[in-house]
Amino acid sequence: MQHFIDAAPGIRLWAEEHGPTDAPPLLLIMGAQSSGRGWPDELVRMLARRHRVIRYDHRDTGRSTWSFDERPYPITALAEDAVAVLDGLDVRRAHVAGMSLGGMLAQLLVTDHPGRLLSATLMGTCALSTAPYVHPDGPRTPAEELPGVAPHVLEMWARPAEDLGLEAELERRVEHWRALSGELLPFDAEYARDLERRIIEHTGHHIAGTAHARADDSGMIRTDELAKTDVPTLVISAPAEPVFPPPHPQHLAQVIRGARLVEIPGMGHALPRPVLGPLASAILEHTSEARRPNS
């Protein structure tokens, strides 16, 4: 079932639900410049066996309002959009799962709206914390000195956005997924191309968005709040991750009170078919075990 939700003045968000309407809600939050259709249908179906799964388009993606050039907004507004989706669908409390920027937004929900969450799952992201990473053998690494984005990914991100036509844009996106997937699993170019072709059809055009890369990202640190949270949190560790490589997941699990860490073999900064089953199993185990007062 599809919906359009008024999230803010002049901002309408597209959302879609799968699964039983009386099942525990699970809100999926995608990364920067990514439509909610970036969550593969196969993964959504797996999760919908036990959940009312909700995926949605951030503003300036997919079928949601594209408005940044006329009305710039901070990244924190995207977290409030997620709350607006819950409100628009009459969801009082939900499990959330966020990937990349979506994992940061999920952390903002954990700290700023804990009463709306049943649990959180974070993947492909970094901690919104200035606390150092403590290595297993004792040394500490300041958060700002943890490994950065792989050079080959940074090089792709630095290229200017150009409209060279649909097929050229499809090829660019496929190569982007190749770079993000890491080197531990064979890359399936046709799978990536099919995913992006369906996203373009959903959006109605192939123009690449840049709003989230230009949005103000200040005011997102939540060191103390993450250390005190009661929201059950699962951190997914991806050994082939080129954007937030290890030990970023380990750092996340340290700075979020009570967080649990699960590694998905071969996973990078993408959702190829081989990781979907293990990822769904990890999320479903976490959501089934999450217990909070009055849940």
Rank of each mutant, 00 (worst) to 15 (best):
M267T: 01
T233N: 07
P24A: 12
V275E: 01
L89M: 02
R214P: 15
H176V: 11
E201D: 13
E285Q: 12
L164I: 03
R260C: 05
A158P: 06
W177H: 12
L108W: 01
I11A: 13
A213R: 09
E175R: 15
R71A: 15
E162M: 10
L252I: 04
P9N: 05
A238L: 03
G258H: 07
E196V: 00
A227S: 15
L78Q: 05
A84G: 09
Q2Y: 00
T141Q: 14
P24G: 05
E70Y: 08
P242L: 10
H212T: 11
D230E: 12
T111E: 07
L284N: 13
H18L: 05
D217Q: 11
W39F: 10
D22S: 13
I207V: 06
V110I: 15
F244E: 03
S64Y: 00
R172I: 02
D188K: 10
V235K: 07
D60Q: 12
R257T: 08
P278H: 11
H51V: 02
H248C: 03
V235D: 03
R50S: 09
R52F: 01
L86E: 11
A168P: 07
G268E: 12
D163P: 12
L78S: 08
F187R: 11
T21Q: 12
M30K: 00
I283T: 07
G103T: 05
R214A: 15
A79N: 02
V243G: 06
Q33H: 03
L13S: 04
L86N: 05
A179E: 10
E285Y: 11
H18N: 02
